[in-house]
Design a protein around this nucleic acid. Sequence first.
DNA 1: AATTTGCGCAACCAAATAGTTGCATTTATA
DNA 2: TATAAATGCAACTATTTGGTTGCGCAAATT
Lengths: 108, 108
Amino acid sequence: MERDIFQAIADPTRRAILVLIATQAMTPNTLAEHFDSTRQAVSKHIKVLTECRLLEQQKVGREIYYHFNPVKMKEIDQWLEQFKEHWEKRFNQLDQVLLNLNSNKDEK
Amino acid sequence: MERDIFQAIADPTRRAILVLIATQAMTPNTLAEHFDSTRQAVSKHIKVLTECRLLEQQKVGREIYYHFNPVKMKEIDQWLEQFKEHWEKRFNQLDQVLLNLNSNKDEK
DNA sequence: AATTTGCGCAACCAAATAGTTGCATTTATA
DNA sequence: TATAAATGCAACTATTTGGTTGCGCAAATT
């Protein structure tokens, strides 16, 4: 099943998983040790993340290492692109306000 | 209730709402005209987006205009920051591969 | 060969969620 | 003032989701 990447990062546990795996590929068991929930619960999250290709499997013997796929994560960034101009504009406006405050102070 | 912004953008309808309102502030009724679902359904989505401060209200008579709050959206971008280096690294690696392919071609 | 280990899958359950309908409130209009 | 319009809120329902337990399979270990 093809999953929605936005739905995938909606869960805080899954976001934590991504942060962990981004720094180092991990097996489900190792990963589960970092959380309070059971291995199967973590495994389910891994499944969701794999189904939207944020994670990729690498089988090594009976272990499965999950790797982070940054290219997929980039899709979020690409979606954000359209809003970027908005917050940059606002930042510049704030900048202008601060500038005005300063010049007013100088005038006194 | 304070809402999780990641959970807020998980829903495709809410993402569409954000795109629309980002270009122009809108009332719930006007907004609902852009979707198949009922006004109340859209209104619920607006509520979620407002609760996590992605939208802000501006009351004008009996109408309520909802504005986009880019500063809040920036939080997503800040979270993505930590992964940015990963996809940039991969991009550079791909770049290197293409360079090598080229130099190999030249050597022949 | 028997046992242990790592893992995925299916069934089940409780909580959350998206959607609907109905109603109350406030503001504008006839 | 009576009515219509814009909106939020509450109750209810169907679906989704996060979690658990139990099972089966394949690879490693004894």
